[in-house]
C-alpha cells in the first residue's frame, strides 16, 4: 500500500517531484511575501511612533486608512 503510493508503477518520481517542487516554490513565495509585509508594517509603525502626540492625532484624524492600519496593529504600538 505505502510502496504503491511511493512508486506509483514507475511514475512516482515524476509525480512526487512535481508535488515537491510546487509545494516548495509556493512556500518560498509565501514566506517572502509575508516577510516584506512585516517589514513594511514595522517601518510604518516606527515612523508613526516617532511623531509627537499632537502630530499623531492630526495624522490619524486626517486619514482613515492610516487609522485602520494602526488599529489593526495596536498591540505593536
Amino acid at each position: 500500500m505505502i510502496s504503491d503510493l511511493i512508486f506509483m508503477n514507475g511514475y512516482g518520481i515524476y509525480v512526487w517531484l512535481s508535488f515537491v517542487i510546487t509545494l516548495g516554490m509556493c512556500s518560498a513565495i509565501y514566506v517572502k511575501t509575508k516577510k516584506t509585509l512585516k517589514k513594511y508594517e514595522k517601518e510604518f509603525l516606527h515612523e508613526l511612533r516617532n511623531l509627537s502626540e499632537q502630530e499623531k492625532r492630526k495624522v490619524l484624524q486626517k486619514s482613515k486608512i492610516l487609522n485602520q492600519i494602526s488599529t489593526t496593529n495596536r498591540e505593536v504600538i
Binding site: 509585509l37 515612523e47 495624522v59
Partner: peptide, 13 residues
C-alpha cells in the same frame, strides 16, 4: 496590503 502601506508611509510625512 504591502503596497497600500508603502504608499501611506510616504504620505505620513
Amino acid at each position: 496590503k504591502t503596497e497600500i502601506i508603502r504608499i501611506k508611509k510616504k504620505r505620513i510625512k
